[in-house]
């Protein structure tokens, strides 16, 4: 291979894949490349090939022990474990709770949902499936969630939610007279299946409220909502 500089179009794109993996592109070029990866399989394969080619260089990077607090944070944000009461850190959140939420009439949405939902997993007759409609202030649904207490699972589907790019939506369960309990981080673009922690299952009832707050990546660092509550709602039976 000589060092000639004739850059035909295909070669240019090949630079782009290598340049992306190498890390020399600026933010705008990186977004363009990511769009290209998403819609062009051949290009995505080139990127993957360069990742495999250059990966051995990372062997030379010395491992550094990360601080101890990261794993517990991940655990609580990803697995929605219940943590101790904690102080109320989101005034706005409590303001809407005080305003009274009650059960949200979700019949219309429930109808739509039943038509479009995937084949249900067989559930014992002891626990009827429930539906949570989590609405924006203007009444439009931000998320809808089906709750299967028999399985201890919840499927959270985004509807119209938007969120700043460097933040994540976190889902909270608020039993009557109790503090919010994290059910985990959800996603504005994809359905997320949540395993309801066993300790919280008895708290999932038609009297409980649910809410979405805006949190830093990985979820609230405190175990209570730290960002604004963008959507809230109640739980109804289907």
């Amino acid at each position: 291979m000589s060092g000639r500089d004739d850059m035909a179009a295909p070669a240019d794109r090949s630079y782009l894949a290598a340049e992306y993996v190498l890390g020399v592109l600026d933010a705008r070029q990186r977004r363009e490349v990511e769009l290209l990866i998403a819609r062009d399989r051949a290009f995505a394969r080139e990127v993957a090939a360069w990742q495999v080619h250059l990966a051995p260089l990372a062997d030379e990077i010395e491992p550094v022990e990360p601080p101890m607090h990261i794993l517990p944070r991940l655990r609580s944000s990803l697995f929605a474990q219940r943590r101790g009461g904690g102080l109320l850190e989101s005034l706005g959140f409590w303001r809407w709770l005080a305003a009274g939420t009650g059960a949200v009439a979700a019949a219309a949405l429930a109808g739509v949902f039943v038509l479009s939902r995937p084949k249900p997993v067989p559930t014992p007759p002891t626990a009827a499936p429930m539906l949570a409609t989590i609405k924006l202030d203007d009444g439009r649904p931000a998320f809808i969630a089906t709750i299967d207490l028999a399985q201890g699972t919840m499927l959270v589907l985004p509807v119209t939610a938007t969120i700043p790019p460097d933040k994540v939506p976190e889902l909270w369960l608020i039993p009557p007279g109790d503090v919010p309990h994290s059910l985990g981080v959800v996603d504005v673009a994809h359905p997320v299946a949540i395993a309801i922690p066993p300790a919280l299952r008895s708290a999932v009832s038609l009297q409980a409220a649910v809410a979405i707050s805006v949190e830093p990546p990985g979820g609230s660092p405190t175990g209570q909502p730290t960002g604004p509550v963008i959507a809230k709602g109640g739980i109804s039976s289907i």
Binding site: G23, A58, I61, E65, P66, I70, L71, P216
Partner: peptide
């Protein structure tokens, strides 16, 4: 985690940034 933290730290230089990115 130690490997990935090393990778993040090498690129970002700042520990607090590398911690955030590790969590992400």
């Amino acid at each position: 985690a130690a490997k990935l933290f090393g990778v993040c730290l090498r690129i970002l230089g700042k520990r607090s940034d590398a911690e955030d990115v590790l969590q992400e």
